[in-house]
Structures are given as C-alpha cells and as structure tokens.
C-alpha cells in the first residue's frame, strides 16, 4: 500500500466524521439567524438533506435514468418507444424467464417459510436447541458463489463425485442429469436457495415464537385444543406479523436471485431468471435498452411487495 492509498484511507476514516460534524455546526449556524418558531420547523429538514441528497444521487436518479434508457436503442442513441419491452414480450425465452422467476417466488418463498416454521417450532421443544439452530443457520454465512460450487458437486453427473447420483447408484438407479432438464433444473437451483435461507426464516420465526407466552398455549390446551389446533388457531395467527416480515424479505430475495443461477448454470438449459436475463442482455449482448427494460420490469415487480411491507410497518408502529 503506497502513501496515496493510505492517505486516502485515513482521509475517509477521519474526513467523513469531520464533514458530518462540520455540516451539523454549519446548519446550526444557519438556523441561528432564524426566529425561534421557524428554527424548529427548518432544522429537521436540514438534517434530512444529506440523506435525501444521497438517495437522490444513488437511487432516484439511476432509477429515472434506467427508465429513460429502457425506451432508447441498444446504444442509447435514439428513442425507440416501447420497442425494447415489446421485443421482450414477443420472445418465448422472456416468458420462460418469467415462469422460472415465478417458480422461485412460489417454491422458494413457500418452502423456506414452511420449513423455517417447522424447524422453529420443533427446536423450541428440544434441549439442544441452540446447537440445532446454529447448524441450520450456518449456510446463511456462506456466499452464494461458494454454495453454488458446493451444490455443483452435489448435482454432478458422475456418481463418483455427485452425492445425489451416488445415492441413486447405491439403490441401483441410473444417474440423472440434474441441471439440464427443465423444470427439474430450476427446482434443483431453488433447493440450493432454500438450503441457504431456511436458517434466516427459522431464526426470525423462532424469535417470534418465543414472544408467545406459554400460559397462552396452556390456556388453549385446557380450553380443549389439540396440539394441531393450538398451532393453527393460536400460534399461527399470533405469528402472522413475523411471517409477513420473513415472507416479504424472501420474496424480494427470490426476485433478485442471480448468483446461484449464474454460478451453477449461467442461465443455460432454460434456468434464466430476471436478474440473470438482465446481466446477459447488458454485459453479454451489450444491449443497454433491453437490459434497462428488464431492470424496470424487476423494479415494478418489487414495488408492490415493498408497499405491503411499508404499510405493515406503519400499522405496527401505530399499534404501539
């Protein structure tokens, strides 16, 4: 590391807090000139200004720019209207991408929540709870790329390498090509995602579960509920807000899926999802217009989920 890099690092570490403090002092100096009443109304806006500025530069502006690029041609030189969108909609492989993403949305989200819930409820009743939970949570700490590589070995065709085919071989079955046949390959990729994310769902749901008092469950048992009725009529409704949090987080993750697909199949064999389609359009085909159109579609798909999440968050705040 030469002096330039070091100097820059020091500047970043010292400079950022210094600028923050200077900004606060500067705003205080500014509002001091104002009458008392105006001060209270203006100060919060001044403090929010930097955040808004960063959001504007790094979020709002690129969003608008992407929308604009999506109605330009592949080199962003001339306006082409909705041609990029129409081009996508007219292409069968785009609809396959949508179908795959839908599979991710439904299977990945659904199974992660169901398994997460089952594990959370079961571990809640055993003595070695922490150990089991740690074990299930570990995949969360592995990078998607590493997980892709690991599961690549699991799905390997050669029974001497691939765990799944080795298993098939022991019962005398023919080895299978797990990652080339649609829709099986997408399901196989989703399994990798599930393996990684069940830990997350379990931890959050388990925390929610701990928040339900045992007296409540005992009251239900005395009232005449079987264990299944206790689960479906008491635990599940009380856990609904937590399930919604986990659900929206995982839906967004499903929509953004890229790494697993990219590492394991590169979107070949009909495993393309929206994010990998974007990557292919932008960096392999060099078609900025189409890529931007895909990005806009992804954005539009995520917005409703975000809105639900924000509304729910506000409701929860209102309840306090």
């Amino acid at each position: 590391m030469d002096f330039g890099t070091l100097g820059f690092a020091v500047l970043a570490i010292v400079g950022v807090p210094a600028v923050t403090v200077l900004y606060i002092l500067a705003t205080e100096w500014l509002v001091r000139g104002l009458p008392e009443r105006r001060r209270a109304t203006i100060r919060p806006w001044l403090w929010l200004l930097p955040a808004f500025a960063f959001l504007g530069v790094y979020l709002i502006y690129p969003m608008i720019q992407t929308a604009i690029l999506s109605v330009m041609d592949r080199r962003s030189e001339s306006f082409v209207g909705f041609d990029n969108y129409l081009g996508l909609f007219g292409n069968d492989s785009f609809w396959l991408t949508i179908a795959n993403t839908a599979m991710w949305l439904v299977l990945f989200t659904g199974i992660v929540i169901v398994i997460g819930l089952i594990v959370a409820v079961l571990t809640d009743r055993v003595r070695y709870e922490t150990g089991v939970k740690a074990l299930i949570f570990i995949p969360m700490a592995i990078s998607f790329v590493a997980a892709g590589v690991i599961w690549g070995f699991m799905y390997e065709f050669d029974p001497d390498i691939g765990t799944l085919n080795a298993g098939l071989a022991t019962v005398g079955a023919e080895p299978q090509s797990w990652l080339t046949e649609w829709p099986r390959n997408t399901v196989m990729l989703i399994i990798v995602g599930i393996w990684m994310w069940v830990g997350f769902a379990m931890v959050i749901l388990s925390a929610g579960l701990k928040g339900i008092s045992t007296e409540l469950l005992e009251a239900a048992r005395i009232d005449g509920a079987t264990e299944l009725q206790v689960f479906f009529r008491i635990i599940l409704p009380l856990l609904a807000p937590t399930i919604a949090v986990v659900g929206t987080t995982i839906v967004i993750t499903a929509l953004k899926t890229f790494d697993i697909v990219f590492v394991m199949t590169s979107g070949n064999f009909d495993t393309e999802v929206i994010a990998s389609l974007f990557y292919r359009a932008r960096f392999i085909n060099g078609d900025v217009g189409s890529a931007s159109a895909v990005a806009v579609i992804l954005l539009l798909a995520i917005i409703p989920v975000m809105l639900i999440n924000i509304r729910r968050f506000q409701q929860q705040e209102a309840m306090r």
Binding site: S213, E215, L216, E218, A219, A220, I222, D223, I234, P237, L238
Partner: peptide, 12 residues
C-alpha cells in the same frame, strides 16, 4: 377450567 395469573387471553 383455569384462570391464569397473566389472564392468558388470546390477543388476536
């Protein structure tokens, strides 16, 4: 039937 110290009413 049991009455609990915390009442244990079903909040939902």
């Amino acid at each position: 039937a049991m009455v609990f110290q915390s009442y244990a009413l079903y909040p939902h």
